[in-house]
Write a protein that binds this DNA or RNA. Structure first.
Lengths: 161, 161
DNA sequence: GCCTTTTGGTTGTAGCGTCAAGTAACCAAC
DNA sequence: GTTGGTTACTTGACGCTACAACCAAAAGGC
């Protein structure tokens, strides 16, 4: 710790820009979704993962892995979404500790009607400023970073290396 | 909105990885700083920006720009840091609406002693998995994204394009 | 079979951020 | 010189997340 191996100017510059994106991006996504659908980005992301699952159903643990969330956080969020009628919880028969959460018809319609606006925001704020090779670079770099951030590799579904 | 111009598979893959980093990185940084210095990453970042300023002093508005924060958020944070003796607020003489916040000697020492551990975490979780050209790519890509996220270009100090 | 450990999930609480509202000072125009 | 509008900041309330404690069921150990 005596020699912290300080960052080079280039590394520091990149780092600060990354931190800025990490700080600013969530509020952009939250603002649009809140305005147009009264959802946080995390709520939308959760509904979206469910909508892609077989039978639009996942166990809490699987869903928490797919969304990078702790079980505690997910439990609170699912409770809110359940109150609003977007999600349903049912006990799992094979493992009676487990809970399945599944998208209701209302939840499915919510995702379908919310997706276009969200995608437009993602394009506007990120994707459309990048050309094809930028996208490839971004993918490679985020993959490398994720391999450190997510050592248990819960994200293997979309390949954190 | 009828044709949402859906993302290509490559774009979607990159996007999900970026979102994952955006979700996971803050908790890594917060965890280390909380454990070793009882600071949130945003508190540390704020102290660090102050420590680099001339006379270790900045106006609230300038500091909020440098940290990508709303004035309201910054006001709360500075209040906390002031209670702990790391920062001091003094009215600004030229413009009596404005407030200067400056690092105390205690705050300066806090930054100095906290920095090495933080840099080590930044290296571990991000920088050390990237080679020189990755760092350049990251810088370029984040710069492009920032030019959209931060249209008023408050970050021009470190050049969001 | 029992006992311990691990896994799966929920809940309460405390803390941070956002939003809306409020105050005070500056500025420009009439 | 006072009115209208903007800028700079603070404050309070509310909502979301993290953390810790909890319970129940499954899986091992022997």
């Amino acid at each position: 710790m005596d020699d912290p191996r300080w960052l080079t100017p280039e590394q520091l510059h990149s780092w600060i820009r990354l931190v800025s994106v990490v700080e600013l991006l969530p509020s952009i996504l939250d603002a649009q979704l809140q305005r147009d659908a009264e959802l946080t980005h995390f709520e939308y992301f959760t509904l979206a993962r469910l909508s892609e699952a077989p039978k639009r159903t996942l166990r809490m643990t699987a869903l928490s892995a797919a969304t990078n969330a702790s079980l505690a956080r997910l439990s609170h969020v699912i409770a809110r979404l359940e109150r609003r009628g977007f999600v349903e919880r049912t006990p799992c028969l094979e493992d009676r500790r487990a809970t399945n959460s599944s998208l209701t018809e209302l939840g499915w319609r919510k995702v379908v009607e919310t997706a276009p606006g969200h995608v437009a925001t993602v394009r506007d704020s990120v994707i459309d400023v990048l050309d094809q090779s930028d996208v490839a670079d971004l993918d490679r770099i985020m993959g490398r970073i994720l391999s450190r951030l997510d050592p248990t590799n819960r994200l293997r579904s979309w390949g954190a290396e």
